[in-house]
Write a protein that binds this DNA or RNA. Structure first.
Length: 367
DNA sequence: TCTGGGGTCCTAGGACCC
DNA sequence: TCTGGGGTCCTAGGACCC
């Protein structure tokens, strides 16, 4: 029968560095910018399991991490390296499996045929060992008839394990776990469910559609189905390119000056525009977002009449949007800006031939 | 413990068209 | 002149993920 295998690399950035620096193995290692005396708003990107044991987690402010783990070794992030290792992982998987769908820099979903759960365990263990030998990186593997369950299984298998969940064990596998184990259930949804006394997936399954919908809206019904182990049919995803690209800057101290913001936005827009053009994309919409000092966010976007790859058009549109949102804020309150984001959306390949006459005759161009 | 940077998807109201 | 139901696009915001 057909199964979904879900591969999740263990502490990916940390292990990319350990591959190159084996002398750091066994030490608490953190990827991120080590806090100095200057104000820092940086967070930890990845923590070794040794560091996690003393309460350090990824996305934790670096100051807090340094307090919890003063003896930690720090390395600054090296994204080109991680992208390259990710490419090696995906290439290795593609050589051995026909249907490989990367889900992020360090995760992939595979579709495989296996006669029994035991046979699937052998496939997963073989690939896990092969990946470690060939690329030098550890991974965790989950297997199930559905990708949602396979992903949860890979989480349970961490670090370095294999967990297979056949169809008739799905409900029992899920029951004791927190609702937070379900991908897509974050802090807000979990808090809303807790208002109804629902913490575990078993409690969610028992609650029923009406209750779940009352607590979290339309999504509640499908969540209850998942909790009961009744999953929508598993389909193989169709490949599609990126839909947007963005760039963020968080200032070391909050900014109250429009001129300074405009300078930053213009520079970010040019860099983003050039990067997107290098990648071979045109964009059809531009957005600017601000995060105020109180962490609230506001955003403005504009669709373009067509699509373009011009960094100058992007820079122009971005500073206009910035002024709009800035003036609107000035009328009501006057918060300072913590973070600014420039975004391009509706990406399409630039090299795509002009709309052909056939397509044209058939109606509006496909977007 | 005051919270980076890069993404995705969903919802909902209004405009506009048939 | 007033009425309908349906579809699509645009925009803003929210939640979530790694």
């Amino acid at each position: 029968m057909r199964w979904v295998l879900y591969v999740d690399m263990d502490a990916f950035y940390v292990n990319c560095e350990l591959r190159d620096r084996p002398e750091l193995r066994g030490l608490p290692l953190l990827i991120g910018h080590r806090p100095t005396d200057a104000p820092s708003r940086a967070v930890v990107l990845s923590a070794s399991y040794e560091a996690r044991r003393v309460g350090v987690r990824s996305a934790q402010p670096v100051r807090e991490a340094a307090r919890r783990c003063p003896e930690a070794r720090w390395l600054p992030p090296d994204f080109p390296k991680y992208e390259a290792r990710s490419g090696e992982v995906m290439a290795w998987l593609r050589e051995r499996f026909s249907a490989v769908h990367p889900q992020s820099i360090d995760e992939a979903m595979l579709f495989v045929e296996a006669g029994s759960p035991a046979a699937l365990v052998e496939i997963a263990k073989g690939a896990q060992a092969g990946l470690r030998d060939a690329v030098g990186l550890p991974s965790s593997w989950g297997g199930a008839p559905h990708h949602l369950i396979a992903k949860i299984a890979s989480d349970r298998a961490k670090p370095g394990g294999v967990r297979i969940v056949p169809a008739d064990e799905v409900a029992r596998f899920l029951a004791p776990q927190s609702v937070r184990a379900i991908p897509g259930v974050g802090p807000k949804t979990a808090a809303a469910l807790e208002q109804g006394g629902i913490r575990t997936i078993e409690e969610l399954a028992a609650a029923g559609h009406r209750t779940a919908r009352r607590l979290i809206g339309a999504w509640g019904g499908s969540l209850v189905e998942i909790a009961r182990g009744r999953l929508p049919p598993q389909e193989e995803p169709t490949e599609s390119g990126p839909r947007s690209r963005s760039s963020d800057r968080t200032f070391a101290t909050d900014v109250a000056d429009l001129g300074e913001l405009e300078g930053t936005v213009t520079e970010m827009a040019r860099e983003l525009g050039e990067a997107v053009a290098r990648e071979g994309y045109r964009f059809g919409a531009v957005g600017v977002a601000l995060r105020w000092e109180d962490f609230a966010r506001v955003q403005r976007g504009r669709a373009l009449p067509g699509s373009t790859a011009s960094p100058a058009v992007l820079a122009n549109a971005a500073s206009r949007l910035l002024r709009e949102v800035w003036e609107e804020e000035a009328r009501t309150s006057a918060r300072r800006v913590r973070t600014v984001t420039v975004r391009v959306e509706r990406l399409r390949r630039a090299r795509e031939k002009q709309v052909s006459l056939d397509t044209f005759a058939a109606g509006p161009s496909p977007d």
